[in-house]
Write a protein that binds this DNA or RNA. Structure first.
Lengths: 258, 258
DNA sequence: GCACCGGTTTGATCTCGATCAAAACCATCC
DNA sequence: GGATGGTTTTGATCGAGATCAAACCGGTGC
Protein backbone atom coordinates (compact mmCIF):
# COMPACT_ATOMS: atom_id res chain seq x y z
CA UNK A 1 0.00 0.00 0.00
CA UNK A 2 2.92 2.36 0.61
CA UNK A 3 3.72 3.60 -2.86
CA UNK A 4 4.98 6.91 -1.47
CA UNK A 5 1.92 8.91 -2.37
CA UNK A 6 2.73 12.12 -4.20
CA UNK A 7 1.61 15.44 -2.79
CA UNK A 8 0.91 18.76 -4.40
CA UNK A 9 3.74 20.52 -2.59
CA UNK A 10 2.79 24.14 -3.26
CA UNK A 11 -0.80 23.58 -2.30
CA UNK A 12 0.16 21.66 0.80
CA UNK A 13 2.63 24.23 2.08
CA UNK A 14 0.28 27.13 1.40
CA UNK A 15 -2.03 25.59 3.94
CA UNK A 16 0.60 25.35 6.67
CA UNK A 17 1.14 28.15 9.10
CA UNK A 18 4.28 30.13 8.69
CA UNK A 19 4.64 29.20 5.01
CA UNK A 20 1.20 30.43 4.06
CA UNK A 21 2.43 33.99 4.53
CA UNK A 22 5.53 33.67 2.38
CA UNK A 23 5.71 35.98 -0.62
CA UNK A 24 5.62 34.32 -4.02
CA UNK A 25 9.26 34.56 -5.06
CA UNK A 26 10.64 33.14 -1.86
CA UNK A 27 7.86 30.58 -1.74
CA UNK A 28 8.86 29.37 -5.16
CA UNK A 29 12.45 28.90 -4.09
CA UNK A 30 11.32 27.07 -0.97
CA UNK A 31 9.10 24.68 -2.91
CA UNK A 32 11.90 24.05 -5.40
CA UNK A 33 14.25 23.08 -2.58
CA UNK A 34 11.71 21.01 -0.67
CA UNK A 35 12.05 17.23 -0.61
CA UNK A 36 9.66 14.49 0.36
CA UNK A 37 10.82 12.16 3.10
CA UNK A 38 9.21 8.89 4.03
CA UNK A 39 9.72 7.08 7.32
CA UNK A 40 8.30 3.68 8.12
CA UNK A 41 6.60 2.99 11.41
CA UNK A 42 9.20 2.49 14.10
CA UNK A 43 12.04 3.99 12.07
CA UNK A 44 13.86 7.03 13.36
CA UNK A 45 13.85 10.31 11.47
CA UNK A 46 16.80 11.70 13.41
CA UNK A 47 18.63 11.19 16.67
CA UNK A 48 19.63 13.49 19.47
CA UNK A 49 22.80 15.22 18.41
CA UNK A 50 22.29 14.82 14.67
CA UNK A 51 22.95 18.00 12.76
CA UNK A 52 19.73 19.87 12.01
CA UNK A 53 19.66 20.46 8.29
CA UNK A 54 16.25 22.02 8.14
CA UNK A 55 12.61 21.75 9.13
CA UNK A 56 10.37 18.74 8.64
CA UNK A 57 6.66 19.30 8.15
CA UNK A 58 4.46 16.27 8.69
CA UNK A 59 2.18 15.62 5.73
CA UNK A 60 0.72 12.35 6.92
CA UNK A 61 1.38 10.11 9.88
CA UNK A 62 2.79 10.92 13.29
CA UNK A 63 6.22 11.49 14.80
CA UNK A 64 7.18 10.95 18.41
CA UNK A 65 9.70 13.36 19.91
CA UNK A 66 11.55 12.10 22.94
CA UNK A 67 14.66 12.18 25.07
CA UNK A 68 16.66 9.03 25.58
CA UNK A 69 18.64 8.69 28.77
CA UNK A 70 22.00 6.97 28.96
CA UNK A 71 20.25 4.39 31.15
CA UNK A 72 18.00 3.36 28.28
CA UNK A 73 14.94 5.12 29.64
CA UNK A 74 12.85 7.35 27.44
CA UNK A 75 10.81 10.48 28.03
CA UNK A 76 8.29 11.48 25.39
CA UNK A 77 8.18 15.23 24.94
CA UNK A 78 5.54 15.48 22.28
CA UNK A 79 3.73 13.98 19.32
CA UNK A 80 3.75 15.79 16.01
CA UNK A 81 0.95 15.15 13.59
CA UNK A 82 -0.06 16.30 10.12
CA UNK A 83 0.37 19.98 9.42
CA UNK A 84 2.89 20.60 12.16
CA UNK A 85 6.57 21.32 11.85
CA UNK A 86 9.61 19.86 13.56
CA UNK A 87 12.90 21.53 14.32
CA UNK A 88 12.13 25.20 13.71
CA UNK A 89 13.96 26.25 16.85
CA UNK A 90 17.08 24.16 16.28
CA UNK A 91 17.16 25.26 12.67
CA UNK A 92 16.95 28.94 13.45
CA UNK A 93 19.85 28.92 15.88
CA UNK A 94 21.84 26.42 13.89
CA UNK A 95 22.19 23.79 16.57
CA UNK A 96 21.90 20.06 16.31
CA UNK A 97 18.70 18.25 17.25
CA UNK A 98 18.03 17.89 20.95
CA UNK A 99 15.42 15.21 20.50
CA UNK A 100 15.02 11.77 19.10
CA UNK A 101 12.33 11.64 16.39
CA UNK A 102 10.66 8.36 15.52
CA UNK A 103 7.67 7.51 13.37
CA UNK A 104 4.66 6.11 15.21
CA UNK A 105 3.10 5.09 11.92
CA UNK A 106 4.28 5.23 8.32
CA UNK A 107 4.89 8.91 7.88
CA UNK A 108 5.43 11.29 5.00
CA UNK A 109 7.20 14.58 5.64
CA UNK A 110 8.17 17.61 3.65
CA UNK A 111 11.76 18.57 4.29
CA UNK A 112 12.73 22.23 3.97
CA UNK A 113 16.48 22.82 3.93
CA UNK A 114 17.93 25.24 6.41
CA UNK A 115 19.72 27.57 4.00
CA UNK A 116 16.57 28.30 2.03
CA UNK A 117 14.57 28.88 5.19
CA UNK A 118 17.20 31.24 6.55
CA UNK A 119 17.05 33.10 3.26
CA UNK A 120 13.27 33.33 3.53
CA UNK A 121 13.40 34.56 7.08
CA UNK A 122 15.97 37.18 6.25
CA UNK A 123 14.23 38.45 3.16
CA UNK A 124 10.58 38.32 4.14
CA UNK A 125 9.71 40.19 7.32
CA UNK A 126 6.17 38.90 7.45
CA UNK A 127 7.43 35.35 7.25
CA UNK A 128 10.06 35.97 9.93
CA UNK A 129 7.35 37.33 12.14
CA UNK A 130 5.16 34.27 11.68
CA UNK A 131 8.03 31.90 12.23
CA UNK A 132 8.86 33.74 15.43
CA UNK A 133 5.31 33.25 16.62
CA UNK A 134 5.44 29.54 15.87
CA UNK A 135 8.54 29.12 17.98
CA UNK A 136 7.06 31.23 20.74
CA UNK A 137 4.01 29.00 20.77
CA UNK A 138 6.13 25.92 21.13
CA UNK A 139 7.95 27.58 23.97
CA UNK A 140 4.66 28.38 25.60
CA UNK A 141 3.40 24.82 25.32
CA UNK A 142 6.61 23.44 26.73
CA UNK A 143 6.36 25.76 29.71
CA UNK A 144 2.85 24.51 30.39
CA UNK A 145 4.20 20.98 30.48
CA UNK A 146 7.03 21.97 32.78
CA UNK A 147 4.56 23.60 35.09
CA UNK A 148 2.28 20.63 35.37
CA UNK A 149 5.01 18.09 35.72
CA UNK A 150 6.93 20.04 38.31
CA UNK A 151 4.12 20.96 40.61
CA UNK A 152 1.25 18.57 40.16
CA UNK A 153 0.98 15.05 41.53
CA UNK A 154 0.48 12.11 39.20
CA UNK A 155 -3.28 12.05 39.63
CA UNK A 156 -3.48 15.79 39.14
CA UNK A 157 -1.45 15.62 35.97
CA UNK A 158 -3.82 13.02 34.59
CA UNK A 159 -6.85 15.08 35.49
CA UNK A 160 -5.23 18.12 33.96
CA UNK A 161 -4.50 16.15 30.82
CA UNK A 162 -8.07 14.91 30.60
CA UNK A 163 -9.48 18.38 30.95
CA UNK A 164 -7.18 19.77 28.30
CA UNK A 165 -8.25 16.91 26.07
CA UNK A 166 -11.92 17.64 26.71
CA UNK A 167 -11.45 21.34 26.02
CA UNK A 168 -10.12 20.49 22.57
CA UNK A 169 -13.37 18.85 21.58
CA UNK A 170 -16.71 20.58 21.12
CA UNK A 171 -17.93 22.30 24.27
CA UNK A 172 -20.78 20.38 25.80
CA UNK A 173 -22.13 20.44 29.33
CA UNK A 174 -21.68 17.85 32.05
CA UNK A 175 -20.45 14.60 30.50
CA UNK A 176 -17.74 14.02 27.93
CA UNK A 177 -16.03 11.14 26.20
CA UNK A 178 -12.36 11.06 25.30
CA UNK A 179 -10.94 8.77 22.67
CA UNK A 180 -7.20 8.35 23.26
CA UNK A 181 -5.35 8.52 19.99
CA UNK A 182 -2.14 7.18 21.46
CA UNK A 183 -1.04 4.15 23.42
CA UNK A 184 -1.26 4.56 27.15
CA UNK A 185 2.43 4.01 27.59
CA UNK A 186 3.17 7.03 25.42
CA UNK A 187 0.69 9.20 27.23
CA UNK A 188 2.14 8.03 30.52
CA UNK A 189 5.60 9.04 29.45
CA UNK A 190 4.39 12.46 28.35
CA UNK A 191 2.93 12.93 31.81
CA UNK A 192 6.15 11.77 33.42
CA UNK A 193 4.70 8.52 34.71
CA UNK A 194 5.49 4.87 34.14
CA UNK A 195 2.80 2.98 32.29
CA UNK A 196 2.20 0.90 35.41
CA UNK A 197 1.67 3.86 37.66
CA UNK A 198 -0.47 5.51 35.03
CA UNK A 199 -2.67 2.45 34.84
CA UNK A 200 -3.07 2.32 38.61
CA UNK A 201 -3.96 5.99 38.84
CA UNK A 202 -6.57 5.61 36.12
CA UNK A 203 -8.11 2.77 38.07
CA UNK A 204 -8.17 4.82 41.25
CA UNK A 205 -9.81 7.73 39.48
CA UNK A 206 -12.43 5.37 38.10
CA UNK A 207 -12.99 3.75 41.50
CA UNK A 208 -13.80 7.21 42.79
CA UNK A 209 -16.31 7.68 40.02
CA UNK A 210 -14.44 10.48 38.31
CA UNK A 211 -14.03 8.57 35.07
CA UNK A 212 -14.99 5.33 33.34
CA UNK A 213 -12.21 3.60 31.46
CA UNK A 214 -12.98 1.25 28.60
CA UNK A 215 -9.86 0.44 26.62
CA UNK A 216 -8.75 3.66 25.00
CA UNK A 217 -12.07 5.32 25.62
CA UNK A 218 -12.45 7.38 28.76
CA UNK A 219 -15.82 8.74 29.75
CA UNK A 220 -16.20 11.60 32.17
CA UNK A 221 -19.69 11.68 33.68
CA UNK A 222 -19.18 15.06 35.36
CA UNK A 223 -16.60 17.39 33.85
CA UNK A 224 -17.34 20.06 36.43
CA UNK A 225 -16.30 17.70 39.19
CA UNK A 226 -13.03 17.03 37.40
CA UNK A 227 -12.38 20.74 37.12
CA UNK A 228 -13.18 21.29 40.74
CA UNK A 229 -10.69 18.60 41.68
CA UNK A 230 -7.97 20.22 39.60
CA UNK A 231 -8.58 23.68 40.94
CA UNK A 232 -8.98 22.76 44.58
CA UNK A 233 -5.86 23.19 46.65
CA UNK A 234 -5.78 26.83 47.72
CA UNK A 235 -5.73 30.37 46.38
CA UNK A 236 -3.06 31.43 43.96
CA UNK A 237 0.55 31.71 45.06
CA UNK A 238 0.40 32.97 48.62
CA UNK A 239 3.97 34.20 48.70
CA UNK A 240 5.49 32.30 51.57
CA UNK A 241 9.17 32.17 50.75
CA UNK A 242 10.91 29.61 48.63
CA UNK A 243 9.01 26.53 49.76
CA UNK A 244 10.50 24.76 46.78
CA UNK A 245 9.70 21.97 44.38
CA UNK A 246 7.06 19.98 46.28
CA UNK A 247 4.17 18.75 44.21
CA UNK A 248 0.72 18.20 45.66
CA UNK A 249 0.16 14.93 47.43
CA UNK A 250 -2.41 12.47 46.18
CA UNK A 251 -5.10 13.39 48.66
CA UNK A 252 -7.89 11.13 47.52
CA UNK A 253 -10.12 12.82 50.05
CA UNK A 254 -10.46 15.73 47.66
CA UNK A 255 -12.00 13.37 45.15
CA UNK A 256 -14.97 12.75 47.38
CA UNK A 257 -15.20 16.46 48.17
CA UNK A 258 -15.28 17.42 44.51
CA UNK B 1 21.29 54.61 48.09
CA UNK B 2 18.44 53.77 45.74
CA UNK B 3 17.88 57.03 43.99
CA UNK B 4 16.71 55.31 40.82
CA UNK B 5 19.91 55.73 38.92
CA UNK B 6 19.40 57.12 35.47
CA UNK B 7 20.60 55.18 32.43
CA UNK B 8 21.52 56.24 28.97
CA UNK B 9 18.70 54.34 27.34
CA UNK B 10 19.87 54.42 23.72
CA UNK B 11 23.36 53.35 24.63
CA UNK B 12 22.14 50.64 26.92
CA UNK B 13 19.73 49.11 24.42
CA UNK B 14 22.24 49.22 21.60
CA UNK B 15 24.32 46.82 23.62
CA UNK B 16 21.53 44.29 24.10
CA UNK B 17 21.00 41.52 21.65
CA UNK B 18 17.99 41.80 19.45
CA UNK B 19 17.79 45.58 19.81
CA UNK B 20 21.36 46.17 18.67
CA UNK B 21 20.27 45.25 15.15
CA UNK B 22 17.30 47.57 14.97
CA UNK B 23 17.41 50.20 12.25
CA UNK B 24 17.60 53.80 13.41
CA UNK B 25 14.07 54.98 12.77
CA UNK B 26 12.43 52.09 14.57
CA UNK B 27 15.06 52.22 17.27
CA UNK B 28 14.21 55.83 17.93
CA UNK B 29 10.54 55.02 18.33
CA UNK B 30 11.38 52.16 20.66
CA UNK B 31 13.57 54.32 22.87
CA UNK B 32 10.92 56.99 22.97
CA UNK B 33 8.36 54.48 24.19
CA UNK B 34 10.66 52.75 26.66
CA UNK B 35 10.15 53.28 30.37
CA UNK B 36 12.32 52.60 33.37
CA UNK B 37 10.87 50.32 36.01
CA UNK B 38 12.25 49.79 39.46
CA UNK B 39 11.45 46.83 41.68
CA UNK B 40 12.63 46.46 45.24
CA UNK B 41 14.12 43.25 46.51
CA UNK B 42 11.33 40.79 47.23
CA UNK B 43 8.70 42.72 45.30
CA UNK B 44 6.98 41.10 42.37
CA UNK B 45 7.26 42.46 38.86
CA UNK B 46 4.28 40.49 37.61
CA UNK B 47 2.23 37.44 38.47
CA UNK B 48 1.19 34.38 36.54
CA UNK B 49 -1.82 35.34 34.48
CA UNK B 50 -1.11 39.07 34.39
CA UNK B 51 -1.49 40.52 30.93
CA UNK B 52 1.85 40.82 29.16
CA UNK B 53 2.18 44.42 28.04
CA UNK B 54 5.68 44.13 26.68
CA UNK B 55 9.22 43.03 27.31
CA UNK B 56 11.34 43.84 30.35
CA UNK B 57 15.08 44.04 29.94
CA UNK B 58 17.09 43.85 33.14
CA UNK B 59 19.50 46.75 33.47
CA UNK B 60 20.73 45.99 36.98
CA UNK B 61 19.77 43.43 39.57
CA UNK B 62 18.20 40.01 39.16
CA UNK B 63 14.74 38.62 38.63
CA UNK B 64 13.54 35.17 39.63
CA UNK B 65 11.06 33.47 37.32
CA UNK B 66 8.96 30.75 38.89
CA UNK B 67 5.75 28.79 38.95
CA UNK B 68 3.57 28.84 42.02
CA UNK B 69 1.41 25.83 42.70
CA UNK B 70 -2.06 26.06 44.22
CA UNK B 71 -0.57 24.17 47.19
CA UNK B 72 1.78 27.05 47.92
CA UNK B 73 4.86 25.33 46.58
CA UNK B 74 7.17 27.06 44.18
CA UNK B 75 9.33 25.92 41.28
CA UNK B 76 12.05 28.26 40.07
CA UNK B 77 12.35 28.14 36.30
CA UNK B 78 15.16 30.59 35.81
CA UNK B 79 17.07 33.64 36.96
CA UNK B 80 17.33 36.64 34.70
CA UNK B 81 20.23 39.00 35.15
CA UNK B 82 21.51 42.20 33.57
CA UNK B 83 21.31 42.38 29.80
CA UNK B 84 18.66 39.71 29.45
CA UNK B 85 15.04 40.11 28.49
CA UNK B 86 11.85 38.77 30.00
CA UNK B 87 8.61 37.95 28.25
CA UNK B 88 9.60 37.97 24.58
CA UNK B 89 7.64 34.81 23.90
CA UNK B 90 4.45 35.84 25.69
CA UNK B 91 4.65 39.25 24.09
CA UNK B 92 4.99 37.92 20.58
CA UNK B 93 1.95 35.68 20.77
CA UNK B 94 -0.06 38.12 22.83
CA UNK B 95 -0.67 35.87 25.80
CA UNK B 96 -0.55 36.66 29.47
CA UNK B 97 2.49 35.83 31.58
CA UNK B 98 2.92 32.19 32.52
CA UNK B 99 5.41 32.90 35.25
CA UNK B 100 5.74 34.76 38.46
CA UNK B 101 8.56 37.32 38.35
CA UNK B 102 10.11 38.57 41.57
CA UNK B 103 13.17 40.69 42.26
CA UNK B 104 15.99 38.92 44.09
CA UNK B 105 17.67 42.25 44.71
CA UNK B 106 16.71 45.83 43.99
CA UNK B 107 16.33 45.76 40.26
CA UNK B 108 16.09 48.28 37.45
CA UNK B 109 14.46 47.26 34.20
CA UNK B 110 13.75 48.83 30.85
CA UNK B 111 10.20 48.23 29.79
CA UNK B 112 9.44 48.06 26.07
CA UNK B 113 5.72 48.22 25.27
CA UNK B 114 4.27 45.48 23.14
CA UNK B 115 2.74 47.62 20.39
CA UNK B 116 6.04 49.28 19.57
CA UNK B 117 7.88 45.97 19.57
CA UNK B 118 5.29 44.43 17.29
CA UNK B 119 5.74 47.37 14.99
CA UNK B 120 9.49 46.89 15.02
CA UNK B 121 9.22 43.20 14.31
CA UNK B 122 6.84 43.76 11.45
CA UNK B 123 8.82 46.54 9.85
CA UNK B 124 12.40 45.40 10.32
CA UNK B 125 13.17 41.94 8.99
CA UNK B 126 16.63 41.83 10.49
CA UNK B 127 15.20 42.61 13.89
CA UNK B 128 12.46 40.01 13.51
CA UNK B 129 15.09 37.47 12.66
CA UNK B 130 17.14 38.28 15.74
CA UNK B 131 14.13 38.24 17.99
CA UNK B 132 13.20 34.85 16.59
CA UNK B 133 16.64 33.56 17.48
CA UNK B 134 16.36 34.87 21.01
CA UNK B 135 13.13 33.00 21.54
CA UNK B 136 14.54 29.88 19.94
CA UNK B 137 17.48 30.03 22.34
CA UNK B 138 15.18 30.23 25.30
CA UNK B 139 13.27 27.27 23.97
CA UNK B 140 16.50 25.37 23.61
CA UNK B 141 17.60 26.10 27.17
CA UNK B 142 14.23 25.08 28.53
CA UNK B 143 14.44 21.78 26.69
CA UNK B 144 17.82 21.12 28.24
CA UNK B 145 16.28 21.62 31.65
CA UNK B 146 13.39 19.34 30.83
CA UNK B 147 15.80 16.69 29.71
CA UNK B 148 17.92 16.75 32.81
CA UNK B 149 15.04 16.90 35.23
CA UNK B 150 13.08 14.16 33.54
CA UNK B 151 15.78 11.60 33.12
CA UNK B 152 18.53 12.27 35.59
CA UNK B 153 18.56 11.43 39.28
CA UNK B 154 19.06 14.12 41.88
CA UNK B 155 22.78 13.54 42.19
CA UNK B 156 23.20 13.45 38.43
CA UNK B 157 21.35 16.71 38.04
CA UNK B 158 23.66 18.34 40.52
CA UNK B 159 26.73 16.99 38.79
CA UNK B 160 25.33 18.13 35.47
CA UNK B 161 24.69 21.57 36.93
CA UNK B 162 28.22 21.79 38.32
CA UNK B 163 29.75 20.85 35.00
CA UNK B 164 27.68 23.39 33.12
CA UNK B 165 28.74 25.96 35.68
CA UNK B 166 32.40 25.03 35.25
CA UNK B 167 32.13 25.20 31.48
CA UNK B 168 30.96 28.79 31.73
CA UNK B 169 34.16 29.86 33.39
CA UNK B 170 37.62 29.88 31.79
CA UNK B 171 38.75 26.46 30.61
CA UNK B 172 41.42 25.08 32.91
CA UNK B 173 42.55 21.52 33.40
CA UNK B 174 41.83 19.24 36.35
CA UNK B 175 40.55 21.31 39.25
CA UNK B 176 37.97 24.06 39.31
CA UNK B 177 36.22 26.28 41.81
CA UNK B 178 32.63 27.37 41.59
CA UNK B 179 31.24 30.37 43.39
CA UNK B 180 27.47 30.04 43.69
CA UNK B 181 25.82 33.34 42.94
CA UNK B 182 22.46 32.26 44.31
CA UNK B 183 21.11 30.83 47.51
CA UNK B 184 21.14 27.07 47.67
CA UNK B 185 17.40 26.90 48.07
CA UNK B 186 16.94 28.62 44.72
CA UNK B 187 19.42 26.38 42.98
CA UNK B 188 17.73 23.38 44.56
CA UNK B 189 14.38 24.47 43.20
CA UNK B 190 15.82 24.98 39.72
CA UNK B 191 17.10 21.43 39.85
CA UNK B 192 13.74 20.17 41.06
CA UNK B 193 14.95 19.32 44.53
CA UNK B 194 14.04 20.46 48.01
CA UNK B 195 16.72 22.45 49.77
CA UNK B 196 17.06 19.65 52.31
CA UNK B 197 17.63 16.98 49.76
CA UNK B 198 19.98 19.20 47.85
CA UNK B 199 22.03 19.74 50.96
CA UNK B 200 22.21 16.02 51.64
CA UNK B 201 23.25 15.18 48.10
CA UNK B 202 25.99 17.79 48.23
CA UNK B 203 27.28 16.20 51.39
CA UNK B 204 27.25 12.76 49.82
CA UNK B 205 29.12 13.98 46.79
CA UNK B 206 31.71 15.56 49.04
CA UNK B 207 31.99 12.41 51.16
CA UNK B 208 32.87 10.59 47.99
CA UNK B 209 35.56 13.14 47.28
CA UNK B 210 33.92 14.51 44.15
CA UNK B 211 33.63 18.01 45.54
CA UNK B 212 34.52 20.14 48.55
CA UNK B 213 31.79 22.39 49.82
CA UNK B 214 32.59 25.53 51.78
CA UNK B 215 29.58 27.75 52.12
CA UNK B 216 28.72 28.96 48.65
CA UNK B 217 32.05 27.92 47.28
CA UNK B 218 32.35 24.50 45.72
CA UNK B 219 35.72 23.13 44.69
CA UNK B 220 36.08 20.31 42.24
CA UNK B 221 39.47 18.62 42.57
CA UNK B 222 39.02 16.51 39.44
CA UNK B 223 36.65 17.78 36.78
CA UNK B 224 37.34 14.79 34.57
CA UNK B 225 36.04 12.48 37.24
CA UNK B 226 32.85 14.51 37.48
CA UNK B 227 32.39 14.27 33.73
CA UNK B 228 33.02 10.56 33.75
CA UNK B 229 30.36 10.16 36.41
CA UNK B 230 27.83 12.11 34.38
CA UNK B 231 28.50 10.25 31.18
CA UNK B 232 28.70 6.77 32.66
CA UNK B 233 25.51 4.78 32.37
CA UNK B 234 25.61 3.24 28.90
CA UNK B 235 25.82 4.12 25.23
CA UNK B 236 23.33 6.53 23.73
CA UNK B 237 19.69 5.56 23.36
CA UNK B 238 19.70 1.85 22.62
CA UNK B 239 16.21 1.75 21.18
CA UNK B 240 14.42 -0.72 23.40
CA UNK B 241 10.78 0.26 23.20
CA UNK B 242 9.02 2.77 25.37
CA UNK B 243 10.70 2.01 28.68
CA UNK B 244 9.28 5.28 29.92
CA UNK B 245 10.06 8.03 32.37
CA UNK B 246 12.47 6.32 34.78
CA UNK B 247 15.43 8.39 35.83
CA UNK B 248 18.76 6.87 36.80
CA UNK B 249 19.09 5.58 40.30
CA UNK B 250 21.59 7.08 42.70
CA UNK B 251 24.17 4.34 42.29
CA UNK B 252 26.95 5.63 44.53
CA UNK B 253 29.09 2.76 43.35
CA UNK B 254 29.67 4.70 40.15
CA UNK B 255 31.23 7.44 42.19
CA UNK B 256 34.07 5.20 43.28
CA UNK B 257 34.40 3.86 39.75
CA UNK B 258 34.72 7.30 38.24
C1' DG C 1 -8.57 -23.97 17.23
C1' DC C 2 -3.76 -22.35 18.96
C1' DA C 3 0.46 -19.69 18.90
C1' DC C 4 2.08 -15.26 18.85
C1' DC C 5 2.55 -10.38 19.80
C1' DG C 6 1.84 -5.73 21.43
C1' DG C 7 -0.37 -3.27 24.74
C1' DT C 8 -2.28 -3.16 29.34
C1' DT C 9 -3.16 -4.60 34.04
C1' DT C 10 -2.02 -6.44 38.65
C1' DG C 11 0.89 -7.74 42.39
C1' DA C 12 4.87 -7.38 45.62
C1' DT C 13 8.58 -4.75 46.91
C1' DC C 14 11.88 -1.06 47.17
C1' DT C 15 13.73 3.64 47.33
C1' DC C 16 14.39 8.28 46.17
C1' DG C 17 13.17 12.11 47.60
C1' DA C 18 9.49 14.88 50.23
C1' DT C 19 7.85 16.40 54.76
C1' DC C 20 8.02 17.93 59.43
C1' DA C 21 10.83 19.60 62.98
C1' DA C 22 14.70 21.37 65.27
C1' DA C 23 19.18 22.82 65.56
C1' DA C 24 23.27 25.18 63.74
C1' DC C 25 25.26 29.03 61.28
C1' DC C 26 25.99 33.68 60.10
C1' DA C 27 25.23 38.04 59.19
C1' DT C 28 23.46 42.61 60.61
C1' DC C 29 21.78 45.79 63.60
C1' DC C 30 20.86 47.72 68.20
C1' DG D 1 27.32 41.60 73.85
C1' DG D 2 22.65 39.71 72.69
C1' DA D 3 18.55 39.93 69.87
C1' DT D 4 16.90 39.17 65.20
C1' DG D 5 16.16 37.03 60.73
C1' DG D 6 17.62 34.53 56.91
C1' DT D 7 20.07 30.50 55.10
C1' DT D 8 21.84 25.89 55.57
C1' DT D 9 22.33 21.49 57.81
C1' DT D 10 20.88 17.35 60.26
C1' DG D 11 17.57 14.01 61.96
C1' DA D 12 13.50 11.02 61.83
C1' DT D 13 9.77 9.49 59.25
C1' DC D 14 6.62 8.84 55.47
C1' DG D 15 4.89 8.15 50.96
C1' DA D 16 4.45 8.66 45.82
C1' DG D 17 5.97 6.51 42.45
C1' DA D 18 9.61 3.30 40.29
C1' DT D 19 11.03 -1.46 39.48
C1' DC D 20 10.70 -6.34 38.58
C1' DA D 21 7.81 -9.93 37.31
C1' DA D 22 3.94 -12.32 35.90
C1' DA D 23 -0.56 -12.50 34.17
C1' DC D 24 -4.09 -10.81 31.17
C1' DC D 25 -6.24 -9.30 27.03
C1' DG D 26 -7.58 -8.39 22.01
C1' DG D 27 -5.93 -8.92 17.57
C1' DT D 28 -3.86 -11.39 13.58
C1' DG D 29 -2.03 -15.12 11.19
C1' DC D 30 -1.65 -20.00 10.38
Amino acid sequence: MNHKQQIDLPEFLRGIEPYAALEDAAFGRLVAAARLVHVERGETLFEQGDACRGVHVVAAGRIKLSFCSPHGAEKVVGIVSAGQGIGEASMSIGRSHQLHAEALSDTTLVFLPQHVLIECVESDRKFACRMMKRIAEKFHRLLVDVESSSLLSGAERIVDFLIREIDLGPARGQAAVIELSLSKSIIASQLNLTQEHFSRLLRQLSEHGMIVVDGRQISVPDVGRLRRYRDSGAGHCVNRGTRSAGRGRADWGRLAAA
